[in-house]
């Protein structure tokens, strides 16, 4: 029995050793996963343009967007047009209730969009402005980390956070992981009809698929439009108002980089370290 016990203690010692090395392994998994390799290695070279402690990766395209809140305030129709353009092009269903709701882009009030900002004595106009909200296309996306099948992933070519609806198992781990409420689940068949026989998708766009029941969906930064040289639908809907500026954050000469260099912008909940690619001019 004693010999057995000694054997066990040896094992226990080895296990403890393995336990000590575990944090390093976890660090590797979390920080140097395949989807983040350049963020970790290229950090010192990158421009220190990012909030927080780490610099942005200097290599590759990183798509981002600047949202000018004042412009949306001047033309209150604009937000509605953006939403309409996006949702009709992407066959986003409208169930008419909050429980089943699916949205890719929507408006929030300031208080709920910027929960980390002080609401005390804010100028009154701010509270009346519609804040455009959509997926932040984080550079360090928690949803991608959480997904057990890589159904959501960061595009190597554009840095956008995309969904592969063929692969999603509908576990909704990404919804729990997203700090911005950007993800919606297909609780029921989006191609179905309501009690009055009205289809949930009012006008089917035959050039884009619908989703199926049981998968998560969200804004894709119009990957399908960018691929054929078009602007994202919401950006196009804004025309030349400058309310939405879209482009490559890693290109110092891009219009978006210029807008960011000239304006004070804030990001939603930047303290969480997700590194959003959306900026707001307040």
């Amino acid at each position: 029995m004693d010999a057995k016990r000694r054997d066990f203690l040896k094992m226990a010692g080895l296990s403890a050793l393995a336990g000590l090395t575990a944090p390093a392994a976890v660090h590797m998994l979390v920080n140097k996963g395949p989807f983040q390799a350049n963020a970790a290695t290229a950090a010192p070279v990158g421009e220190a343009g990012e909030g927080g402690h780490e610099a942005a990766p200097a290599t590759g395209v990183r798509l981002g967007m600047v949202i000018d809140i004042k412009k949306f305030g001047e033309n209150q129709e604009l937000a509605r047009q953006c939403i309409e353009a996006c949702h009709s092009i992407h066959n986003v269903p409208d169930y008419g209730n909050a429980k089943d709701e699916i949205k890719w882009i929507w408006t929030e009030d300031y208080e709920h969009a910027f929960t980390d900002q002080s609401q005390y004595k804010r100028n009154t106009t701010l509270h009346e402005l519609p804040i455009m909200t959509l997926c932040n296309h984080c550079d360090n996306p928690p949803c991608v980390r959480a997904c057990p099948t890589q159904a959501t992933f960061k595009s190597k070519k554009t840095g956008a956070v995309l969904m592969d609806y063929h692969r999603c198992i509908g576990c909704r781990f990404c919804m729990a992981a997203c700090p911005y409420g950007a993800r919606s689940f297909n609780w029921r068949d989006p191609r179905g009809k309501d009690a009055k026989g009205q289809p949930f998708i009012k006008h089917l766009n035959a050039d884009f698929p619908t989703r199926t029941r049981g998968v998560v969906e969200k804004c894709n930064f119009c990957a399908e439009r960018l691929a054929v040289g078009k602007q994202p639908a919401c950006v196009e809907a804004c025309g030349d108002t400058g309310a939405l500026v879209f482009g490559d954050l890693n290109d110092p000469s891009s219009p978006i980089s210029k807008v960011l260099a000239e304006n004070f912008t804030i990001q939603r909940n930047a303290a969480l370290g997700t590194k959003p690619s959306l900026f707001y001019i307040i």
Binding site: L29, V30, G33, R145, A146, C147, P148, T149, Q150, A151, R167, C168, I169, G170, C171, R172, F173, F185, N186, T212, R213, G214, V215, V216
Partner: peptide, 18 residues
């Protein structure tokens, strides 16, 4: 699961960061 028939995707596409 929203798509229970795809449950084995977890094995087909093993994802150690999840």
């Amino acid at each position: 699961l929203g798509q229970p028939t795809r449950a084995l995707n977890v094995l087909i596409h093993p994802t150690p960061h999840s």
